[in-house]
């Protein structure tokens, strides 16, 4: 494995196969395989409790897999987890810096832990780069959610890691802070840092180069966003035209070929498995109510709702990597 493994690993920042994890007999991760190219932003999408956090913790050596294995930056996730810790930045889901230390003290602590030269200067410089310069002497516990998250990002990038593992970094953060945060992530990626980020925001998923959709401990789909949408085999329609939308929604939701009905202001978005059955049903219903119906592109959200409801079909066929 050694020589070949290393060269093979060179192109992949993360190369994990068939990862499994059980807690007290309950299997939370049920065979996740994952390949992430260096310099790529890889999104981990899925509802709460789907196994995202557990998978990330296994990748950085915080949990020992019950089955399967893999490599991060070429290091074995079980046997060489110490090397992984040196080169990986991990941002936990919960704020995990010291609330009774200031911004500067927290960053200096992290710098010292990683054995960085001139920790205090580095802490100040990093804080300024992250826009935290004015808050250097503020206690971390008194920061607002957005600033806490910036501080956490600063802390996990301070030691120039080659790989960032971000576990729901933008949960509970306002839209402006979320956008700034994603700008920072793209800036890091452009410098060659690989980023694995878990989220349950669809708009964030669309900012990733590639993504994997995790549901109940398995990857149901993965790849670039447009490919996932294209391969889903879904079609969508946009319906508008004033009154009667409510009634139409109830009607369509009751049809077996319709999988999701979403209101968007005065419009309605309907998605389902592509085919004559769906198109006929939608057109007929619109005609009867004198509503305008046009073809629309299915969204990522449609795809995930499709996966959740259609899980058994998907699992048997195109699931996994």
């Amino acid at each position: 494995m050694s020589a070949q493994g290393r060269t093979e690993a060179a192109g992949w920042a993360i190369d994990a196969h068939n990862l499994r994890k059980s807690f007290g007999g309950r299997e939370v991760v049920r065979g996740i395989s994952l390949k992430v190219r260096r310099g790529e932003i890889y999104g981990f999408l899925g509802p709460n409790g789907s196994g995202k956090t557990t998978t990330i913790r296994m990748l950085c050596g915080l949990l020992t897999p019950s089955g399967g294995g893999g490599r991060c930056l070429g290091y074995d996730i079980v046997r060489e987890s110490r090397m992984i810790r040196l080169h990986v930045g991990y941002m936990t889901q919960q704020f995990s810096l010291y609330s009774d230390l200031t911004v500067g003290e927290n960053l200096a602590f992290v710098a010292r832990v990683y054995g960085m030269a001139r920790p205090v200067e580095l802490a100040e410089r990093t804080a300024r780069e992250m826009g935290l310069g004015a808050r250097l002497n503020q206690l971390a516990g008194t920061l607002s959610g957005g600033w806490k998250q910036r501080l956490a990002l600063a802390a996990c990038t301070l030691h120039d890691p080659q790989l960032l593992l971000l576990d729901e970094p933008t949960a509970g953060v306002d839209p402006k802070a979320r956008r700034d945060f994603w700008d920072s992530i793209h800036a890091l990626a452009s410098r060659g840092v690989t980023v694995l980020v878990s989220t349950h925001y669809m708009d964030e998923a669309e900012r990733c180069h590639e993504l994997a959709y995790i549901y109940k401990g398995r990857i149901l789909a993965n790849g670039p966003v447009d490919r996932i949408v294209a391969q889903s085999g879904l079609a969508a329609f946009s319906i508008s035209g004033g009154r009667g939308l409510d009634d139409l929604a109830r009607h369509l939701a009751g049809l077996p070929q319709v999988e999701s009905v979403t209101f968007r202001g005065d419009e309605m978005h309907v998605a389902g498995r592509a085919g004559k059955a769906l198109a006929d049903a939608v057109h007929a219903a619109c005609k009867a109510r004198r509503l305008t119906c046009t073809a629309d592109a299915p969204t990522l959200e449609d795809v995930f709702i499709h996966f959740m409801e259609d899980r058994p079909k998907v699992c048997g066929g195109e699931a996994g990597a």
Binding site: L62, Y90, S96, V113
Partner: peptide
Amino acid sequence: ERGTMEALLATPL
């Protein structure tokens, strides 16, 4: 309890 242990464990300490 404060959740800082997880981050501490993820460091090379």
